[in-house]
């Protein structure tokens, strides 16, 4: 398991190449990018809870390992000031079977979205706005 909370940009391709599947036949990765918004996004600021963040990510990844047979898990999540198209976060899962790798990656994404202590603030030409969680985000957890 490799869990990283960092300010620095990362290279998703390099991370994939460096991700050790430990002999598994399937690797699934997801990379989340800063999306532009109408009006033109000037900055996305990601705040987090340093004392809690890594622990929360480890617990979520450990839950994925308990539910699926995974031979490796990677979670990278950034904080600080980001620009449109920059990578925000990435997950990678390795398993003997692709269904497990896909499902575990989706599970990780659903939980990171509403159970990892990050908050996003968008700045556009018209002002600042905290991104709000959606009912859909919370509903997504119920399938697990």
């Amino acid at each position: 398991m490799d869990i990283r909370v960092q300010q620095e940009r990362f290279d998703a391709g390099a991370e994939l190449n460096g991700f050790d599947p430990n002999g598994a036949g399937a690797v699934v990765t997801f990379t989340g990018l800063v999306r532009d918004v109408a009006g033109g996004l000037e900055e996305m600021l990601i705040e987090h809870y340093p004392a809690m963040t890594e622990k929360a990510l480890r617990e979520i990844a450990a839950e994925a390992e308990a539910r699926w047979q995974l031979s490796n898990v990677l979670v990278i999540h950034r904080f600080g000031s980001l620009q449109p198209d920059e990578p925000i976060m990435m997950v990678a899962t390795a398993s003997r079977h692709r269904d497990a790798a896909f499902e575990a990656a989706t599970f990780l994404m659903d939980y990171l979205k509403s159970r990892a202590p990050f908050w996003k603030k968008e700045t556009t030409a018209t002002g600042e706005n905290w991104v709000e969680s959606t009912v859909k985000d919370e509903e997504a957890l119920k399938r697990w």
Binding site: M52, I88, R115, F118, W130
Partner: peptide, 12 residues
């Protein structure tokens, strides 16, 4: 020792 208050999280 510590209590934290915040809006619903928006990671990912």
């Amino acid at each position: 020792r510590e209590v934290a208050f915040f809006p619903p999280m928006t990671g990912g």
